[in-house]
Write a protein that binds this DNA or RNA. Structure first.
Lengths: 199, 199
DNA sequence: GCCATCTTGGAATCAGGATTCCAAGATACT
DNA sequence: AGTATCTTGGAATCCTGATTCCAAGATGGC
């Protein structure tokens, strides 16, 4: 009997992700969202609740669509270090070129903003960090199994190290860091972890 | 002949730093500043200009009072790796305990926010990154001169790596990262850079 | 002590924020 | 087709944002 929605909430969320990702939650107005999505205020509120809930939904969507696929690729095939190198290459490519250049990472951005005061947001951040670390850890144990690691390299601490490095890449890319420099930095990190190639 | 200010702009700026550092610029209202400083709106505007100029002044003040002293200690005495280790220890201590626990770094926070759209802010961020990298580079060349570095460690790329690691520490500490974990991560990084102690 | 000049207090302004409300429109089952 | 039920448009609400303005107060040189 009821009417049905005249729009696709899924598509809408993707548009909203872009807004919050680029501008952050505090500087994005509901009016911006109305304009960008073409939706009406009423539809927005009826579907998603208020602005904060919309932000949370967008943040979760970002993780699903952007972060988690990359984490999965990191562990696929137990390739070890090459997978890690590829992960960082893709990361830097997304952060420094194309549509999302200089947007940073929506999750990293959330760390720095006041949005992290919300316990629900905080939970997403912690979960994100855990998943990133775990994926790197898995890749590093695969690397160890394939004897790709230098002696004395602790996979656990190294996973955390690489995770923090990724945050650094995300942050600096938002300020316009040079892709070449970032790639050089990541290469240095992976070199110091990997077995010396000719020695 | 004129009247003089009835307050100390210097002290005021320190109070303002705390506000912007903790909450960011977008979520800090002029009213918050009026309340925290005890100043009147008129005095604020007459002395510092608008909110954005006040933020810039606070950001520069933060660097002068918080960042640059740490950078200086990093290079003092050409101690090399121990100075780097000490730098990260102090960093983690400030980020995870005491008055400023979980505030992160005001400059790192600025990277992620919309404030970095302002060219003046961007310039401060770039300058900060350059100084941090340079200080680390200086410490690493001192380390190299003292034969503290593993063979094949490139001071330049490593300086950038450690700088990005510092950003990562800053970000995660704002989300409540555990100091022990952070210290372990930094130790792993420095171990992989330094000469193996017993081999 | 007086006056030109700045500072201060606090109201006033004006824009924009998020959210709510209701009448009008659309839907699908009967 | 009719109707109960949801969605939609757009105005209305109410709050808080930054900034300005002016009268009143304070200062230091004369």
């Amino acid at each position: 009997m009821p009417d049905i929605k005249h729009f696709d909430p899924d598509e809408t969320l993707d548009v909203v992700v872009r807004l919050f990702w680029r501008q952050g939650v505090a500087t994005t107005g509901v009016q911006d969202i109305v304009t960008a999505t073409g939706l009406n205020r009423s539809s927005l509120y009826a579907t998603f609740g208020g602005k904060q809930e919309l932000y949370l939904a967008a943040l979760r969507r970002y993780r699903e669509r952007r972060s988690q696929p990359m984490f999965r690729r990191l562990t696929e095939g137990d390739r070890g270090l090459p997978a890690v190198a590829e992960f960082f290459d893709s990361l830097i490519a997304v952060r420094c070129s194309g549509e999302y250049a200089r947007w940073g990472c929506m999750v990293s951005n959330a760390h720095a903003g006041a949005e992290n005061g919300d316990p629900d947001v905080r939970a997403v951040l912690d979960r994100h960090h855990q998943e990133l670390r775990d994926a790197l850890y898995t890749a590093l144990t695969a690397a160890a199994a394939r004897a790709q690691l230098a002696a004395g390299t602790d996979p656990e601490a190294t996973a955390e190290l690489l995770a923090l490095l990724a945050y650094g890449v995300n942050l600096r890319s938002r300020a316009g860091a040079d892709a070449r420099t970032l790639r050089g930095t990541v290469t240095a990190a992976l070199d110091s972890i990997g077995r010396a190639p000719l020695a």
